[in-house]
Nucleic acid binder design. Structure first.
Lengths: 197, 197
DNA sequence: CGTACTTTTGAATCGCATCAAATCTGGTGG
DNA sequence: CCACCAGATTTGATGCGATTCAAAAGTACG
């Protein structure tokens, strides 16, 4: 996750991969369509979006560097849309090739490790969303994502708010009160520093 | 997930597995301890619990039939406690044996499928927790977990509330209003039936 | 048959969503 | 290079829905 995810792909897969260039607004795949390839975002940003009954959009996954809908490759149809939010370079590996490559021991081991990491990350995300207040969610995010008390936020605050399950207004207010309380310090280029443990 | 998860274990692993009988309140493993085995709950109930900074308990995973902390087997230490909530029978497979067994092609394929399913489930759970109102979360749960408009709830409403990220009071009230509105019908033995789509 | 836990309802409170609007910022094209 | 535009950031006012605290009734299990 920290390192480029595509590096776990074995040479033969990288050899047969197509590199897609998709501009903002493009649809990588649509809800209901059949998975034909495994996608790996190398630059830009892609989001898995599901439109709720009431019309609200829910972001299921946000990929800036990593695989997209990797748990659904063996499914009959995608259950969400994959939208390019920021012009992206995306590797596309044919589904059958990918599955055949999994017969290689080293690759399968690496792949299991990757999916495990994704699962732990998702469970952590659930844990965070179970917290009741905005402040607790921010602290939880810090505790789990920061490297040595310093968080390098790789997104806008608005996107962060969405990930925390908050409106951006609520996040702004919470951050402000935490800054004023001295619990947090904001540094340029989207960095935050925690004060106490 | 629907079928007994342990059935994906190959014969040689089932042969070397120990069957643990743990009574309510027992600790399967503690936060900070090193993973020594892969556990699979066969009956009873086991919960992964993390105590938040404020002292509140957060349920990370709830296992009544399936593997526990399966994504952390290759980790140096558990980051949560595994507590037996209801007297349980748990299969224990030594860590090294499990990892060696993954060299078998069929088992690894099955295992990847299992972890994929877990990942999809966890992402769905996140999606649900991003919904703002109790009613929406209940409906989402119905839509994703019900079989043909009928939901067989395999837990108490209190546990359900925790899974939905609500207090039990909020869930009771929401259910009542949905019953009164005719959106839902309650049947004996924890079954619910949706009215419209 | 008692005890622990779930289920259920009530009242008061609080935090977040919502709606509104102004400012700031980065990137685009003329 | 500057004007412009879309999106991000920020602040304010208001209301709703869920939490919280409290308490009673139902239920399962040893």
């Amino acid at each position: 996750m920290r390192l480029d995810a595509h590096s776990i792909l074995p040479p033969e897969l990288r050899a047969c991969a197509t590199e897609l260039q998709l501009s903002k607004g493009a649809l990588l795949f649509a809800q209901g369509s059949k998975p034909k390839a495994m996608y790996c975002v190398r630059s830009g940003e892609d989001r898995l979006i599901r439109t709720a009954v009431n019309g609200a959009e829910i972001v299921l996954q946000r990929a800036t560097s990593g695989f997209v809908a990797e748990a659904s490759l063996d499914h009959a149809a995608y259950h969400c849309d994959a939208v390019v939010v920021k012009t992206a370079t995306i590797l596309s590996v044919p589904r059958s090739r990918f599955q055949r490559a999994l017969s290689d021991a080293a690759f399968r081991e690496a792949w299991i490790g990757y999916v495990n990491a994704q699962l732990r990350h998702s469970r952590l995300q659930c844990e965070r969303l179970l917290l009741r207040t905005a402040r607790e969610r921010v602290l939880h995010f810090m505790e789990t994502e920061a490297r040595g008390r310093v968080l390098k936020l790789g997104m806008t605050k608005k996107a962060w708010a969405a990930e925390l399950g908050l409106t951006h207004e609520a996040l702004y207010r919470t951050l402000r009160s935490m800054l004023e309380a001295g619990e947090l310090a904001e540094r340029p280029s989207g960095c935050f520093r925690m004060k106490s443990v």
